[in-house]
Design a protein around this nucleic acid. Structure first.
Lengths: 193, 193, 193, 193
DNA sequence: TATGAATGAGTATTCATTCAT
DNA sequence: CATGAATGAATACTCATTCAT
């Protein structure tokens, strides 16, 4: 009945491990079907250890989501040049981010109950971008920018989960396709440079 | 409350009521956060009454999903003319169906764990349709039909939840927008008649 | 939703049918694993019908046991001649009774929680008989009649369930064996006539 | 009562306590009338604690039965000398075992639904023993060994429950009686030395 | 830092029994 | 005589969380 600190144990490592295992399990099984007992089993520690580093199951989940959102929306802040290239670049950055954080993306964009807020914010971001670029695309003028943005977010979400995170398509391939769906290609080519 | 039969009680009515309340609760709170106790409270009966009509919480949920899917895929069987109008009509029928069954749609297309299978099947349906109509659209020839279908399903899902089920847009408005996003409008108008 | 009396239905018949099905089910599955719902299903009536004829599950079970016991102990009252033949005859009657009422025997001698009382009474009966016949058997004189009676009842119970009710042996065969176990055969033969 | 670990608590002790209380309750009330809530109340712990140590009510019951059977049939393996003394010794060992484990015996030989299997195996064991000892007893030659074994097991069961476990007779007394019932005493005495 | 041990509060499900028709 | 419909009271089992060491 040995108790107390494991030899070779290390707080940060345990916390990180728990976090990783939690991400894996939340991503593949969802919030409700992931038990604390599953997480600690995967991390090879006991349940009280979990509470040493996280306040609760819920707070950990919220943490993960915040991390996902923070990094996600940072992508929209970094580009000063507000032209067509911006839009192109944003898509690439987005897909790149999803591709590099597949599990967190699954959680933050799909499993979480507040993922719908994330997507609402994404829609707003795209609205701003499209609004500014209206001038370049005859197509946009005739259409409701809000609807286009919503549709675009739907497309991105779906392509991400079915083709990007499954490694069936690359970031570049999907970006290309998205642009050709949402914009007349020739125009795009013209202005994108 | 005394035991036994209620005055004026009727089995079919009780079952229907339970079903409706279950749909409402599953749609707004999700599977795991909807308790049998919530459902029966909403229907003003006791827990054993639930089991009089349904085998389990799970089997009821599965039932609802099957009903949703059955009616959904029936929409794809009814149109003999395989031209552009078909595509147009399918989108209208789909949105119409979602619009008429908002809660079941939320369950079957979003809450359910097998909603991803439904969407996969939708993608396949669209692939078939687009494949047949390839000839009419120069745009289609250059693009991957699978990706377009995926994107389309993503768009439909998102527009449905954010604009259709919230009554912000009509079926016709969204159909129009979807067509103009996924097809060059002029071509469409030409061939659609 | 037809309700009320079935055509061709008959109270006595329903009651008898319920009783029979209950006996079958109690005998094979035991009291706790036999549900009222099982009984009525087997009898092809509804649950309230059960309560039309019996007060409760428990009271029916008690009834069955009382019937079993009544007929059982009647077997001990009918024989005026108090000699060795009496003993022989009692065994035969007992086994005969068990053999003719296999299901009720299973219930009353095995499933019931008060079966131990039945067996206690059987032991007493045998004690009386053996007490009176002590004189004829040298073997008996040296032994504790109570223990012999207990042992005899144990033997009878076991042989009944494993060999009589399974039709592997006849009443006569088992009687013969029991007598030869519990009495020296030659003596028996001598006095039994 | 506060949550978490009790002062001075010890897992093995709790488990053992639950086991003991379960044995007591199963033995006196039977499987179906023993509720988990009864067991934990008797052990002064809460329900989740029960599941900390046992998988389910059923699995605990099965465990107890297996323990009973394991120790029981071990009694038959230990005697190399295959003569009359063996038989004598087996009876003594058996009764000794029952006498030392009265509650477990009640469960394993009476309450359990698979107790009939245990008794079947006991019958087989006795058949083997008697088969080998046939030569010594003229009585055995004329009789069906299977029936004798069945009868013997019935006798043992009954004497155990009514006289041994109630402390009315000792192991030795009952062994003596059983031998004198099932064998002609003089012969026995002759060969047993 | 970490564990062994325990629990409060649910949570789905079952069953005998009863009332209204 | 019989049924359709309903319920009170359990009952086994689960899970996030916490205390003592």
């Amino acid at each position: 009945m040995a108790r107390g600190r494991k030899v070779n144990s290390n707080g940060e490592r345990s916390k990180q491990l728990l976090r990783e295992k939690a991400i894996e399990l939340f991503a593949s099984n969802g919030y409700y079907q992931t038990k604390i007992s599953d997480i600690v089993k995967a991390a090879n520690v006991t349940q009280p250890t979990f509470y040493l580093y996280f306040d609760s199951k819920d707070s950990l989940f919220i943490d993960l989501n915040e991390q996902f959102q923070l990094n996600l929306f940072r992508l929209f802040e970094e580009h000063p040049g507000q032209n067509v290239a911006h839009f192109h670049q944003v898509i690439i950055n987005l897909l790149q981010y999803f591709s590099e954080n597949p599990l967190l993306t699954k959680i933050g964009l799909y499993q979480s109950e507040e993922s719908y807020l994330v997507k609402e914010r994404l829609v707003e971001k795209f609205e701003h971008i499209l609004e500014r670029q209206k001038q370049y695309f005859s197509k946009l003028e005739q259409m409701d920018i809000h609807i286009i943005s919503q549709s675009l977010v739907g497309s991105i979400e779906r392509l991400t989960f079915t083709l990007l995170l499954t490694n069936k398509k690359t970031v570049d391939q999907l970006t290309e396709e998205l642009l050709s769906i949402y914009f007349v290609k020739e125009e795009l080519l013209t202005y994108a440079r």
